Amino acid sequence: MVEVTSVAELRDLVGKPNDRAAHKIRPALHELDRQWLANSPFCLVATADAEGRCDVSPKGDPAGFTLVLDDTTIVIPDRPGNKRVDGFLNVLANPHVGLAYVVPGRNDTLRINGRARLLRDAPFFDDLVVNGHRPALALLVEIEEVFHHCPKAFLRSALWRAETWHPEAVSSRARICKTLEASDLSLEALEAHYGPRYAERLYG
């Protein structure tokens, strides 16, 4: 292995960004960013703890689930999960977060970096109700940087091309759980748990 150990060496390998890429970062939302958020049902939330150990957590709801309070403040509701709250624990130790918003079928993404706070209630929680579920927690992000990311990764991966999808190539969620997480449970019980009724419990 040949390791890169300096900024100078890295720049020698990849070069410098052009002016457009170097200066595209903005400190506040544009109307086009608001449009993107209104149509995005999914984002990835990157956090790190006080020692720099990282976590990336997917968040998803109907399109427009991220509430825009103003040009520099957004809110992401929390929904029922496995209660590990890895990202929230990180935010309590280190408020810096990075977000990547996806619109299905689009090859570009919206990226937002900022500082987060964990809220247990606020008047706008009533605006975050989905399927009768009012979140017990929400992540408020004070925006420091916002910019759109180019399509190359999505194009290279052919992510949205259905003919490239082969979900059966990997083990089922039930089998993964049986092998790695819940060896004491039967595969039949896990298949029932992750079966059609699983979607009925998303907000329960």
Rank of each mutant, 00 (worst) to 15 (best):
M1C: 04
V2M: 04
V4A: 13
V4S: 12
A8L: 05
E9S: 06
E9T: 03
E9K: 09
L10S: 08
L13E: 13
H23R: 12
H23N: 15
H23Q: 09
H23M: 07
K24C: 15
R26I: 10
P27Y: 13
A28T: 11
A28M: 05
E31D: 15
R34S: 08
Q35E: 14
F42I: 12
C43T: 09
D49W: 00
E51Y: 04
G52D: 01
V56C: 14
S57N: 10
S57I: 12
K59I: 14
D61L: 12
L67E: 08
D71H: 07
V75T: 03
G81W: 14
K83A: 12
D86R: 04
N90T: 06
H96E: 09
V97S: 08
L99T: 04
A100W: 01
Y101F: 15
Y101T: 07
R106H: 04
R106N: 01
N107W: 00
L110N: 02
G114V: 01
R115L: 01
R117Y: 00
F124D: 15
N131A: 12
N131Q: 11
P135F: 03
A136K: 11
A138N: 03
A138Y: 02
A138W: 02
L139K: 03
E144T: 11
E145K: 13
E145Y: 12
F147A: 04
F147Y: 15
F147K: 01
H148N: 08
F154S: 12
S157L: 01
S157W: 04
L159C: 01
W160N: 13
W160I: 13
W165Y: 10
P167G: 12
E168C: 04
E168A: 12
A169H: 05
A174P: 05
I176H: 08
T179D: 13
T179E: 14
S183R: 15
L190M: 10
Y198Q: 15
E200W: 03
L202S: 06
G204D: 14
